[in-house]
Amino acid sequence: MKRKMKRFEGYLYILPWLVGFLALQFVPLVNSLWYSFTDFQLLGDAKFVGFQNYRKLFSDPLFRQSLMVTFQYVLIAVPGKIIFALIVALILNQRLTGINLFRTLYYVPSILGGSVAISVLWKYLFMNQGVVNNLLAVVGLPGQDWLGNPNLALGTVSLVTIWQFGSSMLLFLAGLKQIPECLYEAAEIDGAGKLRVFFTITMPELSPIVLFNLVMQMINAFQDFTPAYVITQGGPLKSTYLYGLMLYDQGFKFFKMGYASALSWILFVIILFFTSLTFKSSQSWVHYGDDV
């Protein structure tokens, strides 16, 4: 009897998660799929309507616009962040004194970036009479309407995201420390140039971390909300109307729960598609060391 109990002792400890997973993740996931096939205003009951929400979505110009904006945003913000993080990590990965200080400074934006305060700050920095334009004037360049010009607004918003490259940078730094020194020594003996060393040793050894960063950042970027909502409210001319904003509007402003659920499932499928595509492609570019 006692031994039987022992077999299940571990369940006692994971019980909180098990309950949480079922009640707050699994059931909601199934429910949102069901809601997406219903007409469901928050105060009424859910009425089954088949594919009507999905059909309506694909003819909704706002949906197409937000999808396009989101793809652009992901394409700017994710590679921007990762490339920046990698370059800074490479510079930091030298035996310089005071590295810890720099590492901390570069990380600070990442603790603050998601906050409303930073979005407010961004709005002020990039306003017409804001600091950025004043700085440009000092060096004799013309100011821009960073937040009012539909061609520039999304880039300005993406900058907040790229600014928070700290976590990716720390991961790259940890990865760089793992690369066996003997690989570099061997390359030096072979007389390989710096660039050659970078592309044949550093990059392949770091590739698993690139993959991890890419996947996590992509999942996050597809769902981003706060900066676009606070800085530009999705404007001008919906040029920063990220998918998260559309979802929020439909779900929590118009309370069209069925329609919003259809939106969220489409996003889920898109994220799933791009993460599996990334994993699939990684077989040809991610290098796993044989020391695992």
């Binding site: 299940f8 002792e9 994971i14 993740q25 949102s32 999942i219 979802l247 919003a260 993460t275």
Partner: peptide, 28 residues
């Protein structure tokens, strides 16, 4: 414990579950 591997894999997979998918049903 029984099903430990499967449960752990399940937990790992929820790391990648986008929060926006469950936001509406959770709210309700």
């Amino acid at each position: 414990f029984p099903f430990k591997k499967a449960l752990f894999a399940l937990m790992l997979s929820t790391l990648m579950l986008p929060a926006t998918v469950i936001i509406i049903p959770r709210y309700i």
